[in-house]
Write a protein that binds this DNA or RNA. Structure first.
Lengths: 196, 196
DNA sequence: GTCTATACGAAGATAGAC
DNA sequence: GTCTATCTTCGTATAGAC
């Protein structure tokens, strides 16, 4: 097989991107080296700069895009034909799974890249903004379909992404689901009243 | 002067801690080296391990504690004798200032340390949990004084810390205040109804 | 596409003089 | 408390063979 689709890359390239996204969730951007990515992905070390001529920044850019696309597809599927609570569950449920499966050691790779971004690599800020933006747009569409006004849907989508991402960080610190549960309870109440 | 209080340390030690907290906000934990801390604080390189025998982990622990204490004092002052909206303004207003003053390059040092924490340094997770916990407790007390029930106040405090921290990250990515403004608008509406 | 070898700087940390 | 010197490991990145 190994059919190469334009812009998709080879298997080992894809594995590296996925591993980078995975590792960023636990150790952050600066804390993750090519060493770790090679070890985790099983990809050959000799082809790093063949696949990523832009080096680590390019790898991170692709990892953020990958995570952005992946979760957006999940939100989209959960939101289609659902009620207002589906928008909250779609987003919060994903991070709940990440937290539990990792023993509260992993969070969001896009957050990790954003908080470590500096002026030397503005592409990373751009990629992060794209991911956050698409998640918000998809959630807002779902809330509109459930009956919220466009303006309110947009604001609530921002609240959902912000509070769930923030709660995920608090859950890592406290090593429990309490913050995420508290936030989800409040969010469901708010979205319920917004579509009345 | 230079009075040395027990557990407070010398001037250069304090400057290092403050600089670490400052630098973590922009480049994260792993992205900030002793080089940077020395350069920014003006402290002598020769006394790093005199002041911090525990090395970088101890420095980070102190930086998180410093940031935790500092902001908690600010929240406490703003919340005393204020209404429910004061709790939101106290917390969100601080991060708004950080974002604007830094040109959207800086965020929360506690968040930075949390998302880069690993099992090698559980002290950092503990210190982060303490900071987040105290902020929530102080905000919850303020909301209770404004008329919210203890249970609701605790949940709302978690929502405020989570959503404002998350919005701060989104603001860095989008390089504007829109996410924080949206979150604050929703939070004020929620807290208003909670104290009725 | 993958390999080895290597460059070069920076990381955190230690030892011992002053 | 601060200095200099040094150690070791690791970081990203490059060159050139296969």
């Amino acid at each position: 097989m190994n059919v190469i689709i334009a812009g998709m890359g080879t298997d080992s390239r894809e594995r590296m991107v996925r591993s980078a996204a995975y590792l960023f969730r636990e150790r952050g951007y600066s804390g993750t080296g090519f060493r770790d990515v090679i070890a985790h992905s099983g990809a050959p070390r000799g082809s790093i700069y063949h696949h990523f001529p832009g080096g680590k920044v390019q790898l991170a850019e692709d990892a953020v895009r990958y995570a952005g696309d992946f979760l957006d597809a999940g939100i989209r599927a959960a939101v289609e034909g659902g009620d207002a609570a589906s928008a909250v569950d779609a987003f919060a449920g994903w991070w709940r799974g990440v937290l539990v499966k990792s023993g509260f050691r992993a969070g969001c790779p896009v957050v990790a890249v954003t908080v470590e971004s500096h002026d030397d690599a503005p592409q990373l800020v751009k990629a992060s903004a794209d991911a956050f933006g698409r998640w918000q747009d998809t959630l807002a569409t779902g809330l509109e379909n459930a009956g919220a006004s466009p303006e309110r849907a947009a604001r609530l989508a921002t609240l959902i992404v912000s509070s769930v991402e923030g709660a995920t960080i608090l859950c890592r610190a406290e090593r429990c689901l309490r913050p995420l549960d508290a936030v989800v309870a409040e969010l469901k109440e708010i979205t319920r009243t917004a579509v009345d």
